[in-house]
Design a protein around this nucleic acid. Sequence first.
DNA 1: GTCTATATATTGATAGAC
DNA 2: GTCTATCAATATATAGAC
Lengths: 189, 189
Amino acid sequence: MSSHRGQTRDEIIEAARTLFYRRGYARTSFSDIVNHTGIQRGNIYHYFRTKDDILDAVIRQLASEYRAALSAWDTELPDPKDRLRRFVHMVMSNRENLIRYGCPIGSLNTELGKETTCATRESARQLFDLFRDWLEEQFSKLTDPQQARSLALHLLGRTEGISLMGHVYHDPDYISSEVKMIEKWIDTL
Amino acid sequence: MSSHRGQTRDEIIEAARTLFYRRGYARTSFSDIVNHTGIQRGNIYHYFRTKDDILDAVIRQLASEYRAALSAWDTELPDPKDRLRRFVHMVMSNRENLIRYGCPIGSLNTELGKETTCATRESARQLFDLFRDWLEEQFSKLTDPQQARSLALHLLGRTEGISLMGHVYHDPDYISSEVKMIEKWIDTL
DNA sequence: GTCTATATATTGATAGAC
DNA sequence: GTCTATCAATATATAGAC
């Protein structure tokens, strides 16, 4: 178990995360990771048996970070509306990356959702689950709890659509105006 | 030029189109196309020099079909609102495929929008241009023409977000309810 | 734990007979 | 136009010295 911790392992995960995001999972090779880190090929296999195992570790780290962020928002912001605003603000503050590479969760699920892909598809979807459940919790405090799940999926779909079209057209102004529309909608809840 | 027409070429394009959609472009190999069509490897290269050339042909066919559909809607439906409704209805009637494989245009642009990818990225984006420009035309007849472009991008983003989340969660009911929301919005224009 | 060297399979692509 | 045979490059993955 001690061989599964440590700096080298973290470096591999960090590089893989960046490369999977920028180039996609299928198009990222071990050589890419080697070139990006300086870690030799054979050594990578000391920490991960397969490429899928690396992807799994990357997804786990993403999930961990997202959970921490949502937890922090819960602590900082008592008002559910402010929490929703904070979520939407994430799209704004992350505009540059979204425009360049799209949404990390959305593009990953798009790639892994295709045929022939492994068991990792489910864990990628669970990244969405994190936000869906958290959003549902906020909406349930603001409106009819029966509709909270639908509203959560609605907001997720809105932000994913914004990320995708903002990415396709490299258009920060589109993202800004769409985010403002959602903020006005949140005000009316 | 005569070697660039014919049934065999169309079979290759048709198979590639299906496979690129279901498995993604990068994960689709020449062997996949061979197995799916029965056409031998060497013969494929008689019609296309590279895999990118096949993708280019697939995108051209998609563009051609979409243009024909939009043109037909223009002929059948004089009312811009009815045209918008027809566009949204496409999401509903295509639900099954969207749930299984996502939006063909959205997922293709997501894959090709990543780094290291070729010149085909631009022609993939032009598939979105077709709908954006057509939607803009309809909106310009309904509201302030100055805002028609924004409304077109807004509607495209909405439908893409619906396709993505419907695909991720394999949820036809989500798609239905979201489409109904958009239809109500169109009524108010 | 880290490295070099290599195995094995698959990829996109060519050459040339028919 | 269609086929078989094959190339060269690259992919993931292993073996084993240090």
